[in-house]
Simulated assay, not measured.
Amino acid sequence: MKFNRLKMSYRSQNLLGQLKTRTGLTPNITGRFAMCLSLKDPSPPNPEEFDEKGSEIHPSVLFGEYEDIFMALMLKRLEKDKLDPQLYLNKMLRAHFNRGTIALFARINDISDFYSMIKQERTE
C-alpha cells in the first residue's frame, strides 16, 4: 500500500503559504504537524469538505524520511474509524491533511508558537 500524490485544498495551500511567511517553515514541515493534529482529533474528518483546487505534494516530499511512520499512523486511524484502507487511505489522508492545516493555522502566529503547542500537546 502506498500514498498517492496529495492534492490539497485551495484554502490549505493559502494557509500553508501564510504559515511559511509567519514561521519560515516550508509546507512539508508544517504539513507534518497538521497531520498529527488531525490524527489526534477523535472525530473522523469529512473528505467532502475539502476541494482539490490547491497544489499537489508528493508523499516523499510531505513526509520525507518519516513516510513509513505516517503510513502506520494512517492505517491505525483507518482501523479505529472502521474504514477499509484499500478504499480510504488516500481520501482520508487528504481530509486529515486539510483539516489539520486549518487547525494548525489557528494556533500558530510565529515560530515560537510551535514550542507552546508541542508542550501543550505532550501534557494532554
Rank of each mutant, 00 (worst) to 15 (best):
L39E: 04
Q13D: 15
M35Q: 02
A106W: 01
Y10F: 12
Y10D: 09
K91M: 12
E48V: 11
N109V: 00
A103E: 13
F105E: 07
P44R: 09
E48S: 11
I108F: 01
M71H: 07
T21M: 12
Q120F: 09
G17K: 15
K20D: 06
F97T: 11
Q120K: 13
F33E: 01
L15P: 06
L15A: 02
H58P: 00
M71Q: 09
D110T: 08
L73E: 10
S12Q: 04
L78D: 05
I108A: 06
L62K: 07
L39K: 03
L75W: 00
S12P: 02
T21A: 13
F114E: 02
A72G: 07
T23P: 09
I118W: 03
D68Y: 02
D110A: 06
D51P: 06
G17Q: 11
I108C: 08
F50R: 02
K91A: 10
N28C: 06
S38R: 02
K7E: 07
N28R: 07
K91I: 15
F114S: 05
D84K: 14
P45V: 00
Q120W: 04
K53M: 12
M1K: 09
L75Y: 01
L78W: 00
F70E: 08
E56K: 07
R11E: 11
F3C: 08
D51V: 07
K82R: 14
L39N: 03
P85G: 05
F33I: 07
T26L: 12
E48Q: 10
D110I: 02
I108R: 06
E49Y: 08
F105R: 03
S55D: 15
H96I: 00
P85N: 04
L62W: 05
D84L: 08
M117D: 04
Q120P: 02
T21N: 12
I118F: 11
S55R: 12
E121K: 14
G64S: 06
M117Q: 08
H96G: 06
M92E: 14
T21I: 13
K91F: 00
T21K: 15
L6Q: 05
E48I: 10
G31A: 04
E121R: 14
Q86Y: 04
